[in-house]
Design a protein around this nucleic acid. Sequence first.
RNA 1: GGGUCGUUAGCUCAGUCGGUAGAGCAGUUGGCUUUUAACCAAUUGGUCCGGAGUUCGAGUCUCCGACGACCCA
Length: 496
Amino acid sequence: MNDKTDEHRLIAERRDKLNKIREQGIAFPNDFKRNTVAGELHAEYGDKDNDFFDANPVRVKVAGRMMLRRVMGKNSFVKLQDMSGQIQLFVSRDALPEGLYADFKGWDIGDILGAEGLLFVTKTGELSVKLDALQLLTKSLRPLPDKYHGLTDTESRYRQRYVDLIMSDVTRKTFKMRTDIIQYVRDFLNQRDYLEVETPMMQVIPGGATARPFITFHHALDMDLFLRVAPELYLKRLVVGGFERVYEINRNFRNEGLSTRHNPEFTMVEFYQAYADYNDLMDLTEELLRGLAVDVIGSTTISYQGESYDFGKPFARMTVKESILQFNPDLNEAQLDDLDQARQVADQLGIPLKDSYGLGKVQIEIFEKTVEHRLMDPTFITAYPTEVSPLARRNDQDPFVTDRFEFFVGGREIANGFSELNDAEDQADRFRKQVQEKEAGDDEAMHFDEDYICALEHGLPPTAGEGIGIDRLVMLLTDSPSIRDVLLFPHMRKED
RNA sequence: GGGUCGUUAGCUCAGUCGGUAGAGCAGUUGGCUUUUAACCAAUUGGUCCGGAGUUCGAGUCUCCGACGACCCA
């Protein structure tokens, strides 16, 4: 932090202690090897009693952070925390080498210790290690938060995640679950012969989504580069190349506002499957999410912020228009099918519209305002207007819409997928429309990507693709109210 | 972008009507041979987020700003 906290007396006291340790020899020893962890001990010996340990002495070497200490004259109890949990140490003056117990009493909560001894059970029935060897491995110079309340200040928890992780079981569990979720998704796709790939994070032409990109500069090449807003166009180039099932789990960057659901960098899994259509991917998504829920939380019922969502039964499916009519019973279809009438509806809803908006864009504005946040149960919304889906294949019966879906639960968009537009000429037209919108001032509109058109001209097989927002998925499965709770190091403003 | 709330000791929090800044934990000193947020005694520790204003006097009232949380767009 700053000089002031550096000079704080609590830190100064610990620095003095460290200096004394330095004078006595190696202050940061690196030769202690543990042979077990707390969780393993509880799993293996949690149900044993002292008769067992008398008959079968178990000698263990453990290491970790001292989280709690109760000094009772010549004996002390310590809670030692490692990556698997906590184990209690029983520290007895007379069992340790001369003088070590006095040293131990000068150590602090937060210090990293290595300890060796025999397992036993205390009077109150807690599995513990009776030490005959003890070593300070790392001196901690900064005091930890209150041993009971921990770190509750949200700002500090985000800015100093390492302290949050030390103090909060809930935080550790959330991020372990995040890893489990990503692992499940990866296994799920691997089992279905999808190939995991990496495509550029720095792109010459940002594409694949309508979003404002971050711009950076490459000095040697003397050119602007864009952090990707999506990997889509590169993944589809790979399908052209013959990798018929590919996926990537990685970061996207969007230069937009922050909220409980938005971080400037966020993680998506995007996957593409040749010879599949958007209906196949809805089925796949349903299977993935259902299996994920069972695997990660052990149930198809997901509790989120006091609500409960059933992933066990088939997910609802309806079109954009159907959903608007369902949640706006006073509207009729004719009002949504006519641009002037639809604009009138939007006006009444207080939605600001630009002159350039066509009927499809107006419909989506109405959808986002009146429907999206009300889609609580798992629901696929289909038939998105072509106008707002520049990379999706037109529907054969109704070219006004595309073969596209988005998936919602808890009022939030989790996934977006569609049958891919593989008609190079149609795609070129759509890019030209995007460029017009960009020139009209929409800085989220796409660029014209000539090489991508060239790739399509080589022939993209009929393909469906989808992106699932990992962060929002983790929020849902870990019952986290803010995206910051599922990002180890969320973006924060400068402190000053 | 707008609104509401918050920011006081390392941490968790009190602070009345505007009148010299409080507790618990942590730390320090002493006591204590099976504790469970151990306990007992003593004790150290403050840029009350920053700035300006009102006032004899501001943690407290007013304004501006920073950061955060929530809601709205």
